[in-house]
């Protein structure tokens, strides 16, 4: 299980990295944390001819609140989020999820933006990005665009990112104190990829009624998905145990589950029902 050969580039600036991508995009691959890429290469399921290692570019590991959003640079590692990076529901949600991402020695290397670029369907960050409506700033030599999370995930390990582009920043809304965020996932062994996860965010108005609701599911389909009907079912009323249970049931029926030898479709639905309800209940219990 040794990686296939590649040429190695270690640019010192973002401009240099973009120039390398422009020249080698099709056969090149950005190396940030590498915690998903390298195992894939070790199994020889990926064989990029060139790796463009951005770890030596200064100033990319930022994570700061700015203009009502949390701006996350391409080298902000998972471990950074283990404690809330910002006060309020967004920082707490990220911290809640971070401890489920693999293990400490992976979290010191793996990056938030790398997870979004890799787009594993069971990635916690991808699920949160979709739930909260992340914006993804993408650069290429001489160009820039902003892609909303809803348009980012295309299929398993496939995103809107073009071969010559770099995911230069992810930003998340810094939700106000009227938001309640929940997170629940199920895996068989600590730190493993989840068989199912739910990220929920409810905004409660002054009367305690649900004014906005977002529910995203991860690990259950080719990409993270929004459980829109389930979220909509909660609008306009105070959440009750029954309404949360009903929303979870809607979420469990409202998608086409991926199946494999260990996880049949109906079991995946069982897990979505349980995780959705637990995420919702957990968000309101706090």
């Amino acid at each position: 299980m040794k990686c296939p050969p590649f040429d190695y580039h270690a640019p010192r600036s973002q401009a240099e990295a973009l120039a390398l991508l422009a020249r080698h995009g099709e056969e090149g691959k950005i190396l940030a944390g590498g915690q998903s890429l390298v195992p894939t290469m070790a199994f020889r399921l990926a064989r990029p001819a060139r790796l463009i290692d951005i770890n030596r570019i200064a100033g990319l590991d930022y994570c700061r609140a700015e203009g009502g959003r949390l701006r996350i640079g391409p080298l902000a590692r998972h471990a950074r989020f283990e404690r809330p990076v910002a006060p309020g529901p967004t920082g707490r949600l990220l911290a809640r999820a971070a401890e489920h991402i693999a293990h400490a020695p992976i979290r010191t290397r793996g990056t938030f933006c790398g997870s979004l670029a890799h787009a594993d369907p069971a990635s916690e960050w991808c699920c949160i990005a979709l739930a909260l409506g992340a914006d993804l700033r993408v650069l290429r030599e001489g160009g820039e665009r902003l892609v909303p999370a809803a348009g980012w995930f295309q299929s398993v390990f496939t995103t809107a990112l073009a071969p010559d582009e770099l995911l230069a920043e992810a930003s998340l809304p810094l939700l106000g104190p009227d938001w309640r965020c929940g997170f629940a996932e199920f895996n068989r062994r600590a730190g493993d990829f989840a068989l199912a996860m739910a990220v929920t965010a409810l905004r409660l108005d002054a009367a305690g009624h649900v004014a906005e609701a977002r529910i995203a599911l991860g690990g259950v389909a080719g990409t993270p998905i929004l459980a829109e009907a389930a979220a909509a079912s909660l609008l306009g009323a105070s959440p009750t145990p029954d309404s949360l249970r009903a929303a979870a049931a809607i979420a469990a029926e409202g998608f086409e589950p991926t199946e494999d030898a260990q996880v049949p479709a109906d079991y995946r639905r069982d897990l979505v029902r349980a995780m959705t309800r637990r995420a919702l209940e957990g968000s309101l219990a706090a």
């Binding site: 190695y8 590498g34 390298v38 195992p39 070790a42 790796l51 400490a104 020695p105 010191t108 290397r109």
Partner: peptide, 8 residues
């Protein structure tokens, strides 16, 4: 701490 198999 890092996994030395996942770094070059």
């Amino acid at each position: 701490p890092v996994r030395a198999c996942l770094l070059f």
